[in-house]
Design a protein around this nucleic acid. Sequence first.
DNA 1: GCTTTCGTAAACAATTTTGTTAAACAAAAA
DNA 2: TTTTTGTTTAACAAAATTGTTTACGAAAGC
Lengths: 205, 205
Amino acid sequence: MKDNKKQKRILEVAEEEFLMKGFSGARTVEIAERAGVSHSMLHYYYKTKEQLFEHVMSEKLQRLKESVATVFMIEDIPAVELVVELVVRHFEFLRENPDLPRFIINEMIMRPEYAEMMKREALPILKDAVARLQRKLDAAAKEGEVRTMEATTLLMDIVSVNLFSFIVAPILSSVKPDMDFQAYYHARCQENVQLILNRINPDIK
Amino acid sequence: MKDNKKQKRILEVAEEEFLMKGFSGARTVEIAERAGVSHSMLHYYYKTKEQLFEHVMSEKLQRLKESVATVFMIEDIPAVELVVELVVRHFEFLRENPDLPRFIINEMIMRPEYAEMMKREALPILKDAVARLQRKLDAAAKEGEVRTMEATTLLMDIVSVNLFSFIVAPILSSVKPDMDFQAYYHARCQENVQLILNRINPDIK
DNA sequence: GCTTTCGTAAACAATTTTGTTAAACAAAAA
DNA sequence: TTTTTGTTTAACAAAATTGTTTACGAAAGC
C-alpha cells in the first residue's frame, strides 16, 4: 500500500491554493499540476472541486476549533497571566496559519452556506470560552487586579491586534523586501501583549 | 445627452460585486443584470471584465488616498487630540467603505500586478503621513504628554482595532440577528479611542 | 503469475463564462 | 430631417474550466 501519498499531496496543494485564491480563484488543473498528479486523478479522489474544497474546509475548521478549545482549557492561573497566555498562543496559532482568517472570513461572506456551517461548528465552543473568561475577569476585577470589562470586547481586541500583525505582513514585506520577519513577529507579539495589558489594567508595568 | 446613467450604474453594481466576491468570483452577466442593462451593453462600455475591474479599482484607490491625505493635513492640534481624530476619522471612513480593506488585501494577494500598482499609488502618501505623525509624537513625548513610541506601530494599532470592528460585524450580526449596529459602531469607536489613548499614554483618563 | 489498486496520458464532453456581432429602434443632437 | 448615440434582443463565437472516459502501464499484494 502506498499510503495514499498522492491523495494527501492533492489535499495539501488544494489547501494552499484555496487559502490563497479562494474557491472561485483556485483552479483544479493547477492544483493537480502543482501536486504532480494528472488532472483525472484529482477528480478520481475528489469527485468535484466543491468536494475537494469541503475536505480542506473541514480540516481547517477542525484545527481552529482545537486551538480555541485548548487555550481555554487552562485553569488555575491568575486572570492577568491567562490573558497574556491568550495573546501569545493566539499569536502563535496565527503564525502557523497565517492566512486562515482571511480565507475563512472571505468564504463566509462569499458563500453563505459555509457561514452557516461555521456558525454551527464554532459558536458553541466560542460561547463557552467567552463565559469562562468573563468569570475569570469578574473575579479578578473584584480583587482590583484588572478593571471591569466585557470578555467579548477584550477578545475582540486581542484578535484584532494579532490578526492585523499578520494581515499587514505581506504588505510590509513588499515595502521592505529585506525585512526580518523573525524579528518583526517577535516585536509584534510583545507589542500586542503590552497593548492588551494596558487595556485590562492601565497600571500594570 | 443622457448623462451616461447606465454606464454609471454598471460601475456602481460592478463595484458592489467585485468588492463582495472579488475579481474571480464576480460575473459580468450578473453585473449587467443587476445594473438593469443588457449584457452586450456592459462590454460596449467596458471592453473586458478586466477593464471594468480596473475602473472600480482606481476609483477606490483614489478615495483611499484622499482619505489618508485629508486626515494628515490637520495641523495646529495637540498630538493627543490628533491621535483621537485619527482614530475617529479612520473609523468613519471604514463605516462608509466597510469592505474596501478586505477587497484590497485580497486582490493584492491574489493578483500581484495590482499590489505593485497600489504600492506605487499609496506608498508615498503613507510615508509622508508617518513622518508627520512621528514628528508630532516626538515633540509631545518631550513635553511628557505621551510616551515615546514609533508612529508606525501606533498606526498599525489604530488600523487594526478599527478594521477588526468591521471585519467581525457581519459575523456578530449572524450570531445576534437583532443586533443594533448603530449602537455597536458607536460603542466600538469609543472603545477603540480609549484603547489607543491607553496605548500612547497609560495615565490619560 | 494473476489480480487489484494506483496511476498516467490524452482526448473529449459539458458547462460556464466571457466576449462579439448584427438587426432593429427610439430619442437626442445636429 | 438626418445623423448620431444609446440601447435592446438574440444569437453565437471563443475561451476557460470542470468533469468523464478510455486505454494502458507499473507495481504491490496475494
